[in-house]
Amino acid sequence: MTTDMLAVTGGTKIFYRGTQDERRALDGLDIALKPADFCIVIGSNGAGKSSFLNAVSGKLPLDSGRISIDGQDVTKLNAHRRAQFIARVFQDPMIGTAPTMTIGENMLLAELRGKRRGFSYGLTAARRARYSDQLAELNLGLEKRLDMAVGLLSGGQRQSLSLVMAVSTQPKLMLLDEHTAALDPRTAKLVMDTTVRAVEELQLTTLMVTHNMEHAIKYGNKIVMMDAGKVLVEIGQEEKRGITVSDLIDRFHTKSDAIALQGS
């Protein structure tokens, strides 16, 4: 049996605990991913999907529960220390890149993710050549604009760049939080195609949050449906084949109705 690439047990995060505004963002979340799992995370607004990803990345420290990556317990590691294992693409194209810095410098920052950064010159000729090659695969012409500030790119170009940056170092875990939601349909498709290609080629263990049920069915080998900070339904590889959007929605409702009944 292989070790889990990601294991979350009893992940709990409660905001404003003990007040009337109490919010259970994560409420005893359990989840495990095998290496190269491509897991789609769905659930209604406020279900805790972003909180889940932020807890994994270390941005949101858990109140209780454990998180381990590739067998190593990272529960106590800060976000910047966990970055050696994790690459992220955010929903907001503005967050994932440094706008006032150039494309080349952003690529450099990503290449050095989680590595020791020294006093040696950053954007060497060898690196520039490598970045050009990596960016050329996008077919957006970014490889010719290494010295252009990222802030001048469109949202779609920035997300594509974020993606190349994320996969450039073969992370143990990739976190995608509605990373195509802010894009127009055509660009969204482009970024999604690039995502799927990279995840499959590099066999990346990936968590992808989406509100798009078609994407949930089409991509990945596993679906996790979240509600109220918990995993409501988990659909594995076998079951996922041949499932339809209405099946998904049915399962979601059956399960949440069942919970509602138990509660009453």
Partner: peptide, 12 residues
Amino acid sequence: ASPDMAEAQGIN
């Protein structure tokens, strides 16, 4: 330039 991005790239 972007503290969130910097943190995600492993910068303290």
